[in-house]
């Protein structure tokens, strides 16, 4: 029994953390937002935003879950879960989970459909970004990153097989979102055919979804930590009644609650990564527990962060909203907390 990461895993995490700290500060997340509020898809991607993805490719992160023979690092969920957490912390405005955790290992094991230039090599190299609508029963609406992605993973309605569609085959139609950095689109079409099928094997289909939910859960942990850090920093500086507001017990108790829920969601996410990495029969249950707890924790931390900031947090000029809205988006996608609790219950036999 040992429930801790290795030095190598922590070292890789630290490298990604310091890179994102430099390359993806709040200004870059903000730059990914449309400035006219009409939807992001119509506008060229700012260079600083594109550079974040390129840097992730440079240090191997985009191919972390791809076998070495295919140009990746050949690592498993336990190795990338901490990287997803860092991507969440920085609110990386790209389809990190969809591309790195879902599409890349899926295409590596199932084989990528040819055509459209949506190759595994392109993913690993950072030139191809993939969105995904793989939550069971997904209706194709408001798929994060689909407006700008080079391809979208969907289920064929009739067979349940996973297909990789080009933007034209998916009929992407940009939508305005609460988190302006996620470039979401409705899929008004889903032209699934033999030429774009990735896999019909239920084991691979289920695994791809679980990886997405796990990656989202890890990002939610990172976002929660970022919101807590921002808030601690603020309440220590902000003075009212002649003292820092962080010295008031009411504020302390809000933030202690936030801390408790974050710290107890964390091992659930890490255990899910373990279950996925070792192919545990409990993988689906453990991933669902992780996503449910991380979603609820991030929303609670976000609510506490907003309250403890007071009015400044309730503005778009201050940075908190960038992370708060991303947390909302991730809590709502890859299965809500209630959906995942239901899945845990079914695994428990109730």
């Amino acid at each position: 029994m040992r429930f801790a990461f290795t030095e190598d895993q922590l070292g890789f995490r630290d490298a990604v953390r310091s890179m994102l700290d430099k390359e993806c500060p709040a200004e870059v997340v903000r730059a990914a937002w449309p400035d006219d509020g009409t939807g992001a898809g119509a506008r060229a991607e700012p260079a600083a935003v594109a550079a974040v993805w390129a840097r992730l490719a440079d240090i191997g992160v985009l191919g972390v879950a791809v076998p070495e023979a295919a140009g990746g690092l050949g690592l498993a969920e336990l190795d990338w879960v901490l990287l997803a957490e860092e991507a969440g912390y920085a609110a990386v405005p790209h389809p990190f989970v969809e591309t790195v955790a879902v599409a890349a290992p899926l295409l590596a094991s199932a084989g990528a459909p040819t055509g459209g230039g949506r190759s595994l090599a392109g993913i690993v190299g950072g030139t191809v970004r993939i969105a995904a609508a793989l939550t069971p029963g997904h209706d194709g609406r408001a798929v994060p990153y689909a407006a700008r992605a080079d391809g979208v993973l969907v289920h064929a309605r009739s067979t349940g097989a996973v297909h990789l569609l080009g933007p034209d085959e998916a009929g992407v139609h940009s939508v305005r979102t609460v988190d302006g950095a996620i470039d979401a689109a409705d899929l008004t079409d889903r032209r699934c055919h033999d030429g774009n099928v990735v896999t019909a094997a239920p084991a691979l289909v289920d695994q791809a979804f679980d990886r997405g939910a796990l990656g989202a859960a890890a990002q939610l942990l990172g976002l929660a930590r970022h919101m807590l850090d921002l808030t601690v920093g603020y309440v220590v500086e902000r003075r009212q009644f002649g003292v820092p507001v962080g010295s008031f017990q009411a504020v302390k108790h809000h933030l202690a609650d936030a801390l408790v829920h974050l710290e107890l969601a964390r091992p659930a996410v890490h255990r899910a990564a373990y279950s996925a990495a070792v192919g545990s029969p409990n993988r689906a249950r453990d991933v669902s527990m992780a996503k449910a707890m991380a979603s609820d924790a991030a929303r609670l931390v976000g609510a506490k962060a907003l309250q403890c900031h007071g009015a400044i947090g309730y503005t778009v000029e201050y940075d908190l909203h960038l992370y708060l809205k991303r947390a909302w988006a991730l809590a709502a996608t890859w299965g809500t907390a209630a959906w995942h609790r239901d899945r845990v219950g079914r695994a428990m036999g109730i």
């Binding site: 029994m1 527990m289 449910a292 609790r341 239901d342 845990v344």
Partner: peptide
Amino acid sequence: RDRVIEGWMRAEAYQLFTLGTVTALTE
């Protein structure tokens, strides 16, 4: 049912949290 599942998960999370604590103490 939702509350029962939530309760079960929270107990499980406490177990996992403790496994992390004991790992740290052991090391």
